[in-house]
Design a protein around this nucleic acid. Sequence first.
DNA 1: GACCAAACTGCGGGAACCCGCAGCATTTGT
DNA 2: ACAAATGCTGCGGGTTCCCGCAGTTTGGTC
Lengths: 253, 253
Amino acid sequence: MKILVVEDDQFHASFLQGVIAEALPEVTETLHVQDGLQGEAAARAGRFEAVVMDLQMARRNGIEAARTIWHERPRTRILFWSNYSDEAYLRGVADIVPAHSAYGYVLKTASRERLKLVLRAVLLEGQVMMDREIQRLRRRSASPRHSLSQSEYAVLLDLALGLQDRLIAERQGLSLRTVQNRLLTLYDKLGVNGEEQALPGLNKRVRALSRAISTRTLNLERLETAQHDLECWLAARPADEKAPPTQGADGAL
Amino acid sequence: MKILVVEDDQFHASFLQGVIAEALPEVTETLHVQDGLQGEAAARAGRFEAVVMDLQMARRNGIEAARTIWHERPRTRILFWSNYSDEAYLRGVADIVPAHSAYGYVLKTASRERLKLVLRAVLLEGQVMMDREIQRLRRRSASPRHSLSQSEYAVLLDLALGLQDRLIAERQGLSLRTVQNRLLTLYDKLGVNGEEQALPGLNKRVRALSRAISTRTLNLERLETAQHDLECWLAARPADEKAPPTQGADGAL
DNA sequence: GACCAAACTGCGGGAACCCGCAGCATTTGT
DNA sequence: ACAAATGCTGCGGGTTCCCGCAGTTTGGTC
């Protein structure tokens, strides 16, 4: 069994390798690389079936790297291992995991024993497994009032990228008014309206993004992958729609 | 000599303590705490004159903790030690360091030797010292075109918090139009206008925040302290101004 | 089918925003 | 001392945004 470790912190990497050696004696080869880009290349070249992936790395973050890897080899088992339990990471992972894939999510603060357990469960047995705290967060964010639905989150991402209503509508295949309705519920669920009445004079749109970040509903990594998605979508979009029915500013006067 | 270590990662903390023992034999007592809040309390109780402070911690981040500590004992020598060289951290530190204080900024990727050097220079000799890479970033961000002036950055923070123009103007003591001019130059320097012409349909205001975060001009920690500042300012503000010349929505009818 | 709830859509208006234009104040260079 | 440069400000208009109101579709229950 071959295993790939993608982790940019040397201390965590060496600790992890120690635990792997102890928990998985059936490992014959481990490769350690320092960032997402190298991780993708190594996975491609080495045909690893098991990966331990840090999120939050330079050059390419763990979620994007995992997406690439899964895109090329959907059966790969990936254990995400991170310092933080941001909702943004959970949604990011949930968005890219292929059907029937084995994966897991552990916090770096987990005990050595728990880490060993999860390593075996996910990488060897092919289970799906999450840290306790992650499970708790997941349950909470599936709760009633404050949690965002799939489509609301998608609109939030578009908002965060700075698209205006019209473009969001186009991208999500909704009417303009519906997008605005979504935004309303977003403002509600993110607590913007609540603050607004205490302090009038907020730009709700910006405040929504601000709060999404403060509450870790969004983070830098998620924003990066969303930006990447946007660029792909833009490239694939037929060029006609780029010019809304305003006077043409390209070509003839 | 007593030294306080504020660091939430156990591996980094133990590595650091090893290096301290080696580099600073004159240390008689080291205390290690796990987050900013404990750090403030420990500094208050223990009267440490030397602190090594991680940024990016739970509960209270390193910059806020340092501000509190310096506020109470301005002579304290603080060495910031972080994984990242975000511009946001640099500005955050620069904003709170008192005159004539000794401080430093090292990256966690620095070599053991360099770390020892900086430890001695800052905590023992009272020098001001930065990591090479930090220096480079600092020089670059003092450059002409793309860097933000002090006041522009202040406006960016207010924008990021979701204030609308009128409130920003009030807070910065500027006219409305001037604030909008600042925003224009912000859009320019953050590259929003450049993108706009490639892809019309951006909400510049949100996009500015989005880019500020992508480029690490802003980050979660800086946003948190800005939010904290805002709340203080709101509390200190005379209540009259809260109601702009709209029909009063408080009290009568 | 009757009914209801929830989501979606169009309309319209008031507020906020983006920004060109032009007038003043201070600073700086020669 | 004059001029050019830079920063601050008011005015006006075109656009986007926020959102109440009302009408339509969807999906489910009785």
